[in-house]
């Protein structure tokens, strides 16, 4: 049943990605002339702001800064006081213009129709996560550090940060190996607010990339669009002998017991085995390198604490 949907998606994806775009290319479109070293950058997506903050070159303006602490919540000190430029989908062009930026960085899937308008305000780069047929969003995020580092003249620091993130993940992998927990099966679910309705992160997601480096066995093996797809009820009931990270949809006031009250959960073997862990509300899976490092540690701690 499922292949038919994937076929359609693959068809659309293959048609909508132009051949000029190689697998490893991150910039879909960029202005012909970019500043040698950008100092006033506007970030139109959380992961870009996060990466800039890690490079110690925080943006002067970013989209939805009021939601950032609740959804990413990392590198907060360096992002304090950044100007709000509206939503991620429809950033306020006037707010951007007033900031007099020398570089605007956005995402192709959101901002491609805006490229000409953005470029009229400042040199613009739109990033595209072409993770190809084998890559994961983690690979793309690691590439992103060097790329954004180059824009803001921080190449050596970018290399250092990338190495540091990879080392941190490797340390987590070592902790798992030491405890004899390598090879355990991992599933990451995103709660959607409806009853027994979840996204499951797929083989091209950041979580899948982390699992690979952590030495864990990630499920499922298929590749959903944007790294997620809907989990069916049958799949939920069949979750047995796996460690499940359930990413919360609500605030910390609702605990795991309340989340899994439904009749269906009573039949999920992994819950009875005590192997379901509630992770606080976040979108680290769609975040940058700091998110990747943090998520790796959270997943590792979870697998180590599981019975």
């Amino acid at each position: 049943m499922m292949p038919s949907r994937r076929d359609i998606l693959t068809l659309i994806a293959s048609l909508s990605v132009s051949p000029a775009m190689a697998e490893d290319t991150l910039a879909l479109r960029q202005s012909r002339t970019l500043p040698r070293v950008a100092t006033r950058v506007v970030a139109l997506e959380f992961l870009i702001a996060e990466t800039l903050a890690m490079l110690d070159r925080p943006p002067i303006g970013m989209s939805d800064p009021k939601y950032y602490p609740g959804w990413i919540g990392l590198e907060l000190d360096r992002l304090a006081g950044v100007t709000d430029v509206g939503t991620r989908q429809q950033p306020s062009l006037e707010a951007i213009a007033r900031l007099k930026p020398d570089l605007i960085i956005g995402l192709a899937y959101r901002h491609a129709p805006l490229f000409d308008v953005l470029e009229s305000l400042a040199p613009t780069v739109l990033l595209e996560f072409g993770v190809g047929q084998t890559g994961t969003q983690l690979d793309a995020v690691l590439e992103l550090i060097g790329m954004i580092g180059a824009y803001v003249g921080r190449d050596p620091e970018a290399a250092k940060i990338r190495a540091e993130v990879e080392r941190s993940i490797a340390e987590d992998a070592a902790r798992l190996a030491q405890a004899g927990r390598s090879g355990r099966r991992l599933v990451v679910l995103q709660e959607l607010g409806g009853l027994d309705t979840y996204w499951v992160f797929t083989a091209n997601s950041m979580s899948a990339g982390l699992a690979q480096r952590l030495g864990l066995d990630f499920w499922p093996k298929d590749r959903g669009r944007d790294g997620v797809r809907v989990l069916t009820s049958q799949e939920l009931l069949a979750l047995d002998d796996v460690d499940i990270a359930l990413v919360s949809y609500s605030g910390p006031q609702v605990d795991l017991a309340a989340k899994t009250k439904s009749a269906a959960w009573a039949h999920v073997p992994a819950l009875a085995q005590g192997r379901v862990t509630l992770i606080e509300r976040n979108i680290w899976n769609f975040g940058g390198p700091a998110s990747a490092r943090h998520l790796a540690t959270r997943l590792t701690d979870m697998v180590l604490a599981a019975p």
Binding site: I8, Q89, Y109, W199, R225, D226
Partner: peptide, 23 residues
Amino acid sequence: ETSAQPARALIWLVGGTYGRSWA
């Protein structure tokens, strides 16, 4: 079907003048 996050395109569904240029 083309995006896991339909919210991105919802805005397009109601129509608007946002981001339109002289061209």
